[in-house]
Design a binder for these strands. Structure first.
Lengths: 199, 199, 199, 199
DNA sequence: TATGAATGAGCGTTCATTCAT
DNA sequence: TATGAATGAACGCTCATTCAT
């Protein structure tokens, strides 16, 4: 019982720290955020933070790990759709909404930047991405068998194109002043349908 | 005359510093690069650097400014093509090659990250992007008149989609272990043609 | 009775903490050892430790106190010998063995270093040393009466010389890679006999 | 010229830092002295100190290196004496005076403590000691040939005994309240003569 | 104009000690 | 009594920036 409480507390504290860190990182960038700022945001002392994370790098990594939820949502969505293309097209507005969320986007870019220099982050990113790719490839191949996806499509290439598009949406909507407008979203839907659906 | 020489020297020194900074930023990230590292890479003393740039932020901004060349190349290319779609499709492999260049990509991401927090950077990014958007919109509209571009296309949306794709390529090829393979490039070409060309 | 048990427990806990501390101090040095390390070595919580010792300084002092056993052994030995010189010479190999024991030596040096800065430690050291000096002086004077010790000897000075030699053995055998070899031990015996025995 | 000035400045600053550090280390102990305290004592800023020494460990090592002068003085003295034993006996009072100097002794003990845990320090100590041993062995063997040193002596062992005695003097005079008195010094002289001189 | 020594605030991290449970 | 989470000051060290030369 005490054990359970302890572990709960431990998890709660970690979550509390990670979400404080995520906010700070999104606002100021990973390397411009000091541990003290994270502590302040999480309402704990510096010493306490180090009971839960061994270093700033560990906080960064944990934050990145906790960001993979978006992917998981998308995968679940794909798995549950009867027609991949239509499923994706219907989901697209809300996917784009997530991708263009300011905090999500800034964090994604910070993580990307970190990825090219931190091996642990790179591994994490790679494995997340592979998971998403695999799920999409499976869904598209199934679609090709079903006849709901263009049979001439190079599936791997198509997945790359779509994921690049997603990443691009994230990058642009944080760098630019405003997120994609409704008309733009429609263009994305149009593109995806035209690209994936049978001719 | 002496004045001209002076100004030339001044410009050359600035360029030298900026390209040293760019290399460092790509290698270690903007905020993990110290001014001393830039000085060393540029073969200049700390005191001298500050004669050319008022602060680290000024160096960052100047570096970002110097990175807009890629855009200009693309714009020139579009202007010179008779058929936008075909022109773009032919240029695509080399565009993708540029976008997936490791140093270019890392710098682009660093700049993106900076953009969401530094107003001067944001303005710069915005203006570069608008320039590119405008050029592409113009080219696509011309194409629609010419009959080389699908008339049903929402041109602004299409441009957003294509630019997102470009940004996505950059982001993915620096975060992932390897740049897009030949087959993937073909998928991009296939997509652009299918998306833009008349039905 | 319960009281007695309690006090026994209390003493046992203290001993347990002190010997854990001694091991840590010898391994890492007093000031590079954290209270947490002592707690871990003693299998006790931080809170519990502070029920037995008021501060780290108190632990250090108690550890130093517990180290005076070596002296007591030596004193007992001297008291029991009929001929001081021969007694000492026979005991010398095992005394040297104790003095050159790595853990003992390191602790002794740590304590010495502490002694020059901590008045309580200094007092402790002084009193231990005085006790040993007194015992040796007494033994040597008795020897002079008996005729087993050189009558020309300035007893106080001789004791200083011998104790310095002991301390030197300790210092050298911890700083140097190896303890004194058998031949070296013989030299010490030769020296002591030549120094103390009647001409 | 500028070069020479620079190097002079560099050396002067290093010396200034080392002697400030030595004072601090003697007063408070190596690990209880903060870099800030050294900076304050040397009248420079933290940043400046790190231009001259890469780390606290580097300062400690340099300080230890600068302490080997005492040895060198002794070696020179031995080399210049016609009769080793008499030379040593005459030098003994001033050697003991050096060894019992408060700052020298405290530093020596700090260095000893450090030696058992820091490989670089151990190597330094070892090499200094070997140098001194070698010089003394050479001098004693020459003495044996000359007839001024007891021929039965195991020279290596004798050197060990004498050096242990020196170290012991250092250790005792810092731990104890007072340095050895004149009578004690006489005992040392008596011992050395009796130990080394021919029977 | 160029140099590089100097500054000092601020960084990530540790640890003796306290105290709610 | 025992626990171990929490504190916060202080640590070793870095770095953007300044300025005497």
């Amino acid at each position: 019982m005490a054990r359970t409480l302890d572990q709960n507390l431990h998890k709660r504290r970690k979550t509390q720290i990670i979400s404080a860190a995520a906010k700070c990182f999104a606002k100021k960038g990973i390397h411009q955020t000091s541990m003290q700022e994270i502590c302040d945001a999480a309402n704990i002392s510096a010493g306490a933070l180090y009971r839960y994370f061994a270093s700033k790098d560990a906080v960064i990594l944990a934050m990145a790990e906790s960001e993979k939820n978006a992917n998981e949502q998308l995968i679940t969505h794909l798995d549950n759709s009867v027609d991949v293309v239509e499923g994706l097209c219907q989901a697209l507005p809300s996917i784009i909404a997530i991708l263009s969320n300011r905090e999500y986007g800034r964090l994604a870019i910070e993580i990307s930047a970190e990825t090219s220099r931190n091996p642990a982050m790179a591994e994490l990113f790679q494995s997340n991405d592979t998971q998403l790719q695999t799920a999409m490839i499976k869904a598209l191949k199934a679609g090709q068998k079903q006849g709901t996806v263009n049979k001439d499509l190079n599936v791997k290439g198509a997945v790359y194109v779509i994921l690049a598009m997603f990443d691009g949406i994230t990058l642009r909507s944080t760098s630019l002043a405003s997120p994609p407008k409704e008309k733009t979203v429609k263009s994305f839907v149009y593109f995806v349908r035209r690209f994936l659906a049978p001719v």
